[in-house]
Design a protein around this nucleic acid. Structure first.
Length: 502
RNA sequence: GCCCCCAUCGUCUAGAGGCCUAGGACACGGCCCUUUCAAGGCUGAGAUCAGCGGUUCGAAUCCGCUUGGGGGUACCA
C-alpha cells in the first residue's frame, strides 16, 4: 500500500492527442514503477465542445496503447471503478457548487457581475496603456445593494476567487526544480464558476485533485504558469498541495507546441496507418526521457522498470516521424508470426474495402508470406503495397517499367519468352524458389545476359512493381498458373508495343 | 506588454567539474551482402556543447548577463 496517486484528466473536446497520450504514459509509468494508483478522470465541463465520440476515442486510444488505469471509467468490463468517483466532472457539479459556496461563505471568493464586453473593454484599455492585463477587482467588494441592482438589471454573476497581491508562490517541480511566481502575474481574481453555474478548469482541477487525493500532478509544461493558481486554490480549500512534475512539450518541426494544424496529432490516425502499440509507446516514452544508457528498443515492462521522473528532460522535443517508423519496424520484426497475422488482417481487409485487392488471403497464406514481409514493414498499412499484387485478378504492368534500363523492347520480349519456357518447364510439382531460380540462372548464363535485367523484367511482369519481396518466393506465392499467365500477358503487351512502333 | 520555462550533431538524446580530441540512435553518404526493395554488418560526414563574462589547477557540466526559442496570461482545457 502506497499513497502515490496520479491521474490523467483529458478533456473530450477532440480526439486523443499525442500529447495527452504521452502525458498519460508518463503518469502510467510513474504509477506502475512506484506501485502507486493511476486514475482517469474526464474533464467535460466545457459542454459546448465536449462530445461522447471524443470520449470514446480517448478511451479506445489509451486502451489500444495498453495504458491501463486503476480508477475511472471503463476499467476492465466495469463502466467505472474506484471509491473516489464519480470520475466524470459533469457528474461532480454538486461538489464544485459546494466548494464554491464554501469559498464564498469564507470570503475567499465573491460574485462578479462584469459582462464579457466590459471585461474586454478593460483588457483593451490596459493593453493600450501597457499595463499588465488583469481583472481590476471592480466587483471585489460589492455591497448587498449594489449586487441587488446588478441582479435587477438581469446580470448573472460569475464567481471569482480572490488572488492575493504581491505574494510569491514557490514550489519544487520534480523536473524543473525550484520555481517562483509572483501572484501579481496571475491576472487578478480568477473566475472559478461561469455565469451559467458551470465550474471552470482551474477550479475543478483543484477540487478534484484534492477529493481524489492526488499526490503527484504530472502534466505538460503548458500548465507550469498556471500552477500557482492551483496552489492558491488548494490552500483556500484547506487541503495538502500535491507535488508537481511538468513534462517538456512535444513540438512541431518549427519548435512550437505540437498542433493539429502543423502535425498529425490524433493517435487514432497513427493506429490507422499501422503503427503498433509497442512501437508507439516506446517512441513516446523516449520523447523527453531516456534510460541514460544506449538501449532504445524497450518494452512496456522495461519502461516501467526503468522509468524515473528525475531523468525527464526539461527542453521540448520535436516529434520525428522517421524515428517513430524505425522503432515501429523494430517492434514489427519482433512480433511472433501468429500475432503479426492477426494484426495484418484488418489492414488487408482495408485494402479489400478500398478495392485495391480483389480477395482476402487466408491466415495460412498470410502466414506463409511472413518471412518475406515482416522485415519490410515499417508500418502495417504498407502490407498492401508490399504483397497486394498477389491478390488481384488482373495485372496490367506498365510498359515503361517492364523494359529494364539496359534492355530494349525486343530484348525484353525475347527474355521473357525464354523465361516463360524455362519456368513452364520447371513444372507445378517442383514449384519452389530454388527450383525456379536455378534454371533461370542457367538461362541467363547461356544467353550472356545479366541476371538483374532478366529478373527485373520478370519481376515487373509478375508483380507490376520494381520493388518487391524476393522474386522467387513471390512467384511461389503467386502460383504456377498465375505466374505463367502474367508472363503471357506481359509478353503480349510487349508484342503489341513492338508492332505499333514499326 | 508582463510572468514563467528552456538551450549538446538536421532530429531524439548520453553527459551530474577531469573518463569528452563530446558517445549512441534516426535521417543522410559510401562499402559489404544481394535478383529489386528491405533487413543486417562495416564505415563516413555531421555539434567552435547559443554567445559573452566569471568561479576553478581544470567547465558541455557551477554562477551571472546577453541572445534565441517556447509556454502562460479566457466566463478553453
Amino acid at each position: 500500500m502506497t499513497d502515490i496517486r496520479v491521474r490523467i484528466a483529458p478533456s473530450p473536446t477532440g480526439p486523443l492527442h499525442l500529447g495527452t497520450a504521452r502525458t498519460a504514459l508518463f503518469n502510467f509509468l510513474f504509477a506502475r514503477h512506484t506501485g502507486g494508483t493511476f486514475i482517469f478522470r474526464l474533464e467535460d465541463t466545457d459542454q459546448a465542445r465536449s462530445s461522447v465520440e471524443f470520449e470514446r476515442d480517448i478511451l479506445d486510444g489509451l486502451h489500444w496503447l495498453g495504458i491501463t488505469w486503476d480508477e475511472g471509467p471503463a476499467v476492465g468490463d466495469e463502466p467505472e471503478r474506484g471509491t473516489f468517483g464519480p470520475y466524470r466532472q459533469m457528474a461532480r457539479v454538486a461538489r464544485y457548487a459546494e466548494a464554491a459556496d464554501r469559498l464564498l461563505a469564507e470570503g475567499k471568493a465573491y460574485y462578479c457581475y462584469c459582462t464579457p464586453a466590459e471585461l474586454d473593454a478593460e483588457r483593451k484599455r490596459q493593453e493600450e496603456t501597457h499595463e499588465p492585463t488583469r481583472y481590476n477587482g471592480r466587483c471585489a467588494n460589492l455591497t448587498l445593494a449594489e449586487r441587488a441592482a446588478f441582479e435587477a438589471e438581469g446580470r448573472r454573476p460569475v464567481v471569482r476567487f480572490r488572488v492575493p497581491r504581491s505574494r510569491v508562490i514557490a514550489f519544487d517541480d520534480m523536473i524543473r526544480g525550484h520555481v517562483e511566481i509572483d501572484t501579481d502575474a496571475l491576472g487578478g481574481d480568477l473566475v472559478i464558476v461561469r455565469s451559467d453555474g458551470t465550474p471552470l478548469y482551474h477550479f475543478t482541477v483543484a477540487v478534484d485533485d484534492a477529493a481524489m487525493a492526488i499526490s503527484h500532478v504530472i502534466r505538460g509544461e503548458d500548465h507550469l504558469s498556471n500552477t500557482p493558481k492551483h496552489i492558491l486554490l488548494f490552500e483556500a480549500l484547506g487541503v495538502a498541495v500535491p507535488r508537481f512534475a511538468h513534462l517538456p512539450l512535444i513540438l512541431n518541426p518549427d519548435r512550437t507546441k505540437m498542433s493539429k494544424r502543423k502535425s498529425q496529432t490524433a493517435v487514432a490516425d497513427y493506429r490507422a496507418q499501422g503503427f503498433i502499440p509497442e512501437g508507439f509507446v516506446n517512441y513516446l516514452a523516449l520523447l523527453g526521457w531516456s534510460t541514460g544508457t544506449e538501449e532504445e528498443v524497450l518494452s512496456s515492462a522495461e519502461l516501467v522498470e526503468k522509468f524515473d521522473l528525475a531523468t525527464v528532460n526539461k527542453a521540448g522535443a520535436v516529434f520525428d516521424r522517421e524515428r517513430l517508423e524505425w522503432l515501429n519496424g523494430q517492434w514489427i520484426r519482433r512480433l511472433p508470426p501468429d500475432d503479426l497475422v492477426n494484426r495484418l488482417r484488418p489492414f488487408l481487409q482495408a485494402e479489400a474495402d478500398a478495392g485495391r485487392i480483389d480477395w482476402l488471403p487466408t491466415d495460412e497464406e498470410i502466414r506463409s508470406l511472413l518471412p518475406v514481409v515482416q522485415e519490410r514493414l515499417p508500418v502495417l498499412a504498407k502490407v498492401g503495397e508490399l504483397i497486394g499484387f498477389l491478390f488481384v485478378k488482373d495485372l496490367d504492368p506498365d510498359l515503361a517499367l517492364l523494359v529494364p534500363k539496359r534492355w530494349d523492347v525486343a530484348t525484353t520480349s525475347v527474355g521473357l519468352e525464354a523465361a516463360r519456357r524455362t519456368i513452364a518447364a520447371t513444372g507445378e510439382v517442383a514449384w519452389e524458389a530454388e527450383e525456379i531460380e536455378a534454371p533461370l540462372r542457367r538461362l541467363v548464363e547461356d544467353r550472356g545476359w545479366k541476371a538483374g535485367d532478366l529478373f527485373m523484367a520478370i519481376r515487373v511482369a509478375v508483380t507490376g512493381r520494381t520493388a518487391t519481396p524476393p522474386l522467387f518466393d513471390t512467384m511461389v506465392a503467386l502460383g504456377y498458373e498465375r505466374t505463367l499467365a502474367r508472363l503471357d500477358r506481359a509478353i503480349e503487351k510487349l508484342g503489341a508495343q513492338a508492332a505499333s512502333s514499326t
